[in-house]
Simulated assay, not measured.
Amino acid sequence: MPYFISLMKFTEKGLREIKNTGDRIKISRDRVESVGGRSIQLFATLGSYDLVQIFEMPDDSSMMQYVMTARRDGYVDPLILPAFDESEWSSILEKIPETNT
């Protein structure tokens, strides 16, 4: 399954209700599973983003469905990045033509 990384910032609503983050994490995991995906890990982070979550999802459409549902809830503003593991990355690199220089 494809991997995705979500970089999330809390919205004002998310900050006001920050004590409920544990409940929202459970809801998030349940939603991911409902579209056939898997939440691999969630990290609270310092810096520009408050949370980072790593997913496996069946496809882009499943990820979009999950993200739009999460955005509608209004607790976080996510930036979604498709991600490639080492094996996939190596396969991609092998397909790049040699330069003519």
Rank of each mutant, 00 (worst) to 15 (best):
Q41S: 11
V67M: 09
T45L: 10
G36R: 00
D50V: 04
V35M: 00
I54C: 07
T45C: 14
I54H: 11
A44K: 02
S61Q: 14
Q41N: 09
S39L: 12
T45P: 02
D50T: 04
I40L: 14
M68W: 11
Q65T: 15
S39E: 09
Q53W: 09
Q65P: 01
Q53M: 13
I40A: 01
V52L: 13
G36A: 03
F55D: 05
E56K: 09
V67C: 01
I54K: 08
D59E: 08
Q53K: 06
G36Q: 00
G36Y: 03
I54L: 13
D59S: 12
G47V: 04
V35C: 01
F43M: 05
E56H: 07
P58K: 05
E56L: 04
M57W: 04
Y66S: 05
G37F: 02
L46N: 13
A44M: 12
F55G: 04
S61P: 00
M63K: 10
M63T: 15
L42H: 03
P58E: 07
I54E: 09
S62D: 08
Q41W: 05
Q53V: 11
I40W: 03
Q41V: 10
S39M: 14
S48Q: 13
L42Q: 03
V67L: 06
I40T: 00
M63Y: 12
G47D: 12
M64P: 00
D50C: 03
G47N: 09
A44P: 00
R38H: 05
Q53D: 14
G36M: 01
Q53A: 14
D60T: 13
I54G: 02
F55A: 04
Q41I: 04
Q41K: 12
V35W: 02
S39G: 03
S48F: 10
S62M: 11
G47Q: 12
M68N: 14
S62Q: 09
V35R: 02
V35N: 03
V67E: 10
I40P: 00
Y49E: 11
T45G: 11
D59P: 05
G47C: 08
F43T: 00
L42P: 00
D60K: 13
F55N: 03
F43Q: 02
M64C: 08
L46D: 12
A44V: 09
L46Y: 13
M64L: 15
M63Q: 14
E56R: 07
S61K: 15
Y66P: 06
D50I: 01
A44N: 10
S39D: 10
M63H: 08
D60I: 13
L42T: 11
V35G: 01
Q53I: 10
F55Q: 01
L46W: 14
L46I: 12
L46T: 12
E56M: 08
F43L: 06
P58I: 07
V35Y: 02
M57L: 15
F55M: 05
L51M: 13
S62I: 09
V35L: 02
M63R: 08
I54N: 05
D59Y: 10
V67N: 08
I54T: 06
